[in-house]
């Protein structure tokens, strides 16, 4: 699905989402009433300081306006890898965007990520993974790092990595592999109007508690994270 198809299918009653240099902003009419804030990154644009500051501005400006959900659409590159972005403190800009989304979510503006294309590394952390519920479309193609780069770092051949990827989802790119760790809550069906699936999600929105580690156990992609985090939490609570 193209971005235009996705927006049309999400908001049959209309939207005013604009794409400016790969940065998405606007709103869409929900069938259940009200308008969702829509932000995001399109056209596989890298997320640098200039893009991130605009996105966080949209989120913070919307906080005064009621309790409608925030949709975060993602088809991005990784963070912008450049001297200028790092010189200006890219980590702060990406963290600020993530903080704004998480804070909005905790304060009654449920944040929903919609991963419909690529996304990677710091861009994924600052957008799609900073939401309460992350939805994947079948076309989604996330990667923490691509296999050729991974081959360089791990000093294993791409063939060996591809072979290993069959038995373990934990390092390999792709929506299914990421979903098995618990990062992606559900995958929508492109043949059904997205508005219906959005309605159904909004009607059954889980509370703001982060349950991605429990999901990773259920799906077998992250066997230990939930138990370790819970054990540390309990030991820490007992200690005081």
């Amino acid at each position: 699905m193209t971005l235009d198809d996705i927006l049309a299918s999400l908001f049959p009653d209309g939207h005013d989402v604009k794409n400016s240099g790969g940065v998405l902003s606007g709103s869409g009419a929900l069938r259940s009433g009200g308008r969702a804030l829509v932000i995001g990154v399109a056209d596989r644009t890298a997320l640098g300081v200039d893009e991130a500051i605009r996105l966080s501005n949209y989120v913070l400006a919307s906080l005064e306006n009621g309790n409608a959900p925030i949709l975060v659409l993602a088809d991005s590159d990784s963070q912008r890898m450049s001297k200028r972005d790092e010189l200006l403190g890219l980590n702060e800009f990406l963290a600020h965007l993530a903080k704004s989304l998480i804070y909005a979510d905790m304060r009654g503006r449920p944040a929903i990520g919609l991963l419909y294309g690529h996304s990677a590394a710091g861009a994924l952390l600052a957008t799609a993974l900073a939401t309460r519920v992350l939805v994947g479309l079948p076309s989604a193609d996330p990667a923490v790092m691509d296999l050729p780069s991974m081959a360089r770092v791990t000093k294993l051949s791409i063939e060996v990595l591809q072979e290993k990827a069959k038995s373990t989802p934990v390092f390999a790119p792709g929506l299914r592999n990421l979903a098995q760790t618990g990062a992606v809550h559900l995958t929508w069906d492109e043949t059904v109007p997205l508005a219906e699936q959005l309605d159904s999600l909004l009607a059954n929105m889980p509370d703001a508690r982060d349950r991605r580690d429990a999901l990773g156990v259920e799906r077998g992609g992250r066997p230990k994270a939930y138990a370790i985090a819970e054990r540390v939490r309990e030991l820490a609570l007992q200690a005081l």
Binding site: I102, L129, A130, V144, T154, V170, T181, D210, G221
Partner: peptide
Amino acid sequence: VRLQEANAGELAIAEIMRAVI
């Protein structure tokens, strides 16, 4: 992120960021 367990590591970072906030 530890690349040998990239998906788990990336999500761990997302969970830590949320837990910090």
